[in-house]
Design a protein around this nucleic acid. Structure first.
Lengths: 191, 191
DNA sequence: GCCTTTGACCTAACGGTGTTAGGTATACGC
DNA sequence: GCGTATACCTAACACCGTTAGGTCAAAGGC
């Protein structure tokens, strides 16, 4: 396919994804139809199949985009230095990332869409996030078995509770520093 | 309505709910249709409307049943004594409850079904669980502001990670005791 | 016993969903 | 300018939750 055509094709793909994100933020992750997103970009539903294999393929592309955005945020974070500082900054960044876009949080971290499973390609991005996390904790000498899992459970727990039970508020986000202290005190005394 | 008829009606309601639970466990919380559950009980889909106002009403009854089951489990737990013992038993009971029935966990603790919101009546059961939890922690002198919220975040985080990322395994459930120690150490030093 | 009511269940159908088949016109490479 | 691949369309399928309206048998009153 010619470059000109390929570029236009890719641009339309992005346009479709952006319309899907907008609808998801407006009506919920699963609260929109292919006819809705088609109308947003000035098409009819079947025409979307020229750009994606179906609705699940759109979800898969959104899944990948979400993890790319998370990786970009992690890139801006310090990975070395005072453990309390590093973990605190990371925790705040992660929880902010989750609560700032609830449908994205559902797509990335909860298994919410009936038939959907991310492709191997997209799932690799999710594993990349975990791998970076592992590296950061190892740098801080926090790489006992289970430490990463306890850390992810703590952070996803805070973010999920915040998103589910107090959307827009700070009932759980304000506990982030306390959770970091708790985690760090516990891990350091057992190091 | 006569007692005889009312009893039969209620029995059919329970039969429908049991069929819905079975389908949910088999194909996922949202992986079944009203026609499916109707076939399970030997009816056609529209006949279910004699027993429930629609699919969301079935979800609502399941939501209530789930929290009743959780309350029943909490009733069997000790509420006083050594804090490590009380919290440990409670944490294991809760996480077991979650991972033993993933669709129930999704229905009760994650906002997974597009239009569904529990009725006030059903939601009261959810608040009852939280109220009992608060009472237990207060008995142990763990009723600083935020302590209950941190505790629920920790437990739901462990349960969700287990259910989402290692179903059937024990990668997160085996961290429960460690999480209890971490939580308790942190709370006691600040009491 | 019969008659009326009412509950339990049915079929038919509506508007909506994701998806497929098949057709048309336009923009591109040559 | 011509042939072709691409971008888009309409029509339609099977399925979904849900509503309307009908049938039949069981229950209750006399």
């Amino acid at each position: 396919m010619s470059d000109r055509r390929a570029q236009r094709h890719e641009a339309t793909r992005q346009e479709i994804l952006e319309a899907a994100w907008a609808l998801a933020r407006e009506r919920g992750l699963t609260g929109w139809s292919l006819r809705d997103v088609a109308e947003s970009v000035g098409m009819r539903a079947p025409s979307l199949y020229g750009y994606f294999d179906g609705k699940d393929a759109i979800y898969d592309a959104m899944f990948a985009q979400g993890y790319e955005q998370l990786l970009a945020r992690l890139d801006e974070l310090p990975t070395r230095g005072d453990p309390a500082e590093v973990l605190g900054r990371g925790a705040h960044a992660f929880v902010d990332f989750c609560v700032s876009d609830p449908p994205r949080h559902q797509l990335l971290f909860q298994r919410v869409i009936p038939g959907f499973e991310p492709s191997a390609e997209s799932y690799a991005l999710a594993r990349e996030v975990l791998s970076r996390l592992h590296a950061i904790l190892a740098d801080l000498d926090l790489d006992r078995p289970g430490t990463v899992d306890l850390w992810t459970a703590l952070l996803t727990g805070l973010a999920s509770q915040q998103a589910s039970n107090d959307p827009g508020g700070d009932r759980w986000t304000r506990l982030v520093d306390r959770a970091v202290d708790m985690f760090l005190a516990s891990e350091l005394t057992r190091a």
